[in-house]
Amino acid sequence: MTAAQSSASGRYPAGGDAFPHRSLLGIAPLQTHEILYLLDEAEQWVELNRRSAKHAEALAGLTIINAFFENSTRTLLSFEIAGKRLGADVVNMHAATSSIKKGETLIDTAFTLNAMRADGIVIRHGSSGAVALIADKVDCPVLNAGDGQHEHPTQALLDALTLRHALRERSQDCQDFNGLTVTICGDILHSRVARSNILCLTALGARVRVCAPPALMPDAVEAMGVTAFHDFDAALAGADVVMMLRLQNERMEGQFIPSPREYRHLYGLTGSRFRRAARDALVMHPGPMNRGVEIDSEVADLAGTSLITRQVEMGVAIRMACLDVLTRRTRGVPGWARLAERGA
């Protein structure tokens, strides 16, 4: 099977119409069937990644640049592995060693990356909207690996894929998440993971609850189609999935909560508290975890319940799918005509 052959052809518009975007900047610009398309495309890579020889040649000869303006270990590694397993030449650019420190503007960095003729650029940046700004100035597809407090689309996609697998193993048929209640608890205000997950999960039909102390809850979050809670016990009641987020201390200016101890008292997912959720409830966390603060090891390590390591596994498959789909136009895959304009 070649990468171009969709494992789910027939359910989607033909060829490039299945995913008519040049870049993946967020979940917000995607239609529900486009989200499902990426999830379906990832299945073949889940399979490949579980073999002992995990290599494909779909992206052979292509250069993928991972430009990380913000520190990252797991996401960078995940994208690097994804690119390499697809046969691409992967280069990592770390902000710490880049000319950003020398005063170069983001736009100049974008022009520089573009001049190196990358076939795909994966970008993480500390400012909301920065990735879209770069995408507008380069000729190749751009993948948002997290921009400020805005979006982290591959995280939301990998979470959806993880959830889908877990539900299927319980022999629940789930093309989508209709009827599923997901509680996201933690620093919603500063979390791009929360925003992308809210968009993705609600698009797929889940009922989403968000839970945070007032200072860490964004204004008018209900407008995104979720129910907001300050009381974690109430937010947990009957939830099918509990997604915990860490406190993003690096994004906080000033004091948002009195102390980690008090935060844990109100919002820590302890074993006893977790029992308020639905009987077969699943636990997720995008990592890195602060054990003993937002989540107790007792819950985080619960086999069959905790999907946390599975999320990491699915991350590679999702990123392979995104790299594959987004480079099809460059690779001249039949049916994937080039898009007319930048930023489409």
């Binding site: 909301s128 407090q149 979006e151 925003r195 204004d219 008018a220 995104m224």
Partner: peptide, 21 residues
């Protein structure tokens, strides 16, 4: 106002921008 660059509300929340009421 602090470091806010937008008015608190749906737009600032969707864009993930620091906002003030």
């Amino acid at each position: 106002a602090g470091q806010a660059v937008a008015t608190a509300g749906e737009m600032a929340t969707r864009l993930g921008l620091p906002s003030a009421p």
